[in-house]
């Protein structure tokens, strides 16, 4: 019937990574663990005489859904810290109690049922298509409609209306000249400096370091070089 060894392998491969949903700190680790659970479930479907669903599970869940989760994590920042302050007092213990209660309740229901296991019908694409486009063809059509509505809904939800007209490059240049700012590009970092690395400020014609020449990103990350050594070096080399 069912190979016990394979069942226990699937049980371990699905249950152990799913605990990452409760204990892992970083959302990316959770996503990778859930991918593992999905692959284990695909093997379980193939064991349960549903090879078509096993393939669909891998393609849809690990291929599309979890990758979309990872994309969104990339979009909104991986380093989102989770606050551990409880806004509802005792929420941790109440929720653990509720989840355990759900599990005990369902195990109690299932264990009271006497199952008479029949001979399996293999769920190959032929058998699934026979049911899908035969008796359940209306449900199938409705699901197509649901998918279209979901796609349009996602487009509408993530669409940001433009509040101000877009600046063209000519307008930006004219604004810069009108304000009296420096009309030319900022010097690249490393120009005329001791090194041509990105984190070394460029030097102006008088030999002074230009702080704006370093990318703002490096400054935010505190990855830029301190300019004091350069300034001191320049002072030293300057003729009296």
């Amino acid at each position: 019937m069912i190979n016990p060894f394979l069942f226990w392998v699937i049980a371990i491969v699905t249950v152990v990574p799913s605990f990452a949903l409760l204990f892992a700190r970083k959302a990316v680790h959770v996503a990778v663990a859930v991918v593992m659970v999905m692959v284990g479930l695909a093997v379980a479907y193939i064991m349960l005489a549903a090879p078509f669903l096993g393939m669909v599970q891998i393609v849809v869940y690990t291929g599309a859904v979890m990758m979309m989760f990872v994309f969104v994590l990339m979009l909104i920042g991986v380093s989102g810290k989770e606050s551990l302050v409880e806004t509802i007092k005792g929420q941790r213990w109440i929720s653990l109690l509720v989840a355990t209660g759900i599990g005990v309740f369902l195990v109690g229901v299932v264990s009271r049922v006497i199952f008479q296991v029949q001979e399996p019908t293999v769920g190959n694409p032929d058998a699934i298509a026979g049911a899908l486009f035969g008796r359940m063809v209306v449900v199938m059509e409705t699901l197509g409609f649901v998918l279209i509505v979901a796609a349009v809904g996602a487009l509408v939800l993530t669409h940001v209306p433009r509040l101000v007209p877009k600046h063209t490059q000519r307008e930006i240049a004219e604004d810069r000249v009108r304000v009296g700012a420096n009309p030319v590009n900022k010097p690249m970092p490393g120009v005329y400096a001791r090194h041509n690395a990105l984190d070394v400020p460029a030097l102006d014609p008088t030999g002074q370091p230009i702080e704006e020449s370093i990318s703002r990103v490096l400054e935010v990350r505190h990855q830029n070089q301190d300019e004091e050594p350069y300034r001191a070096h320049l002072e030293k080399g300057k003729p009296e």
Binding site: L21, L22, Q91, S95, V98, A99, T100, I102, G103
Partner: peptide
């Protein structure tokens, strides 16, 4: 299912 519901609640 229980682990998933605990995750949603926690």
């Amino acid at each position: 299912f229980s682990i998933g519901s605990a995750s949603v609640l926690l």
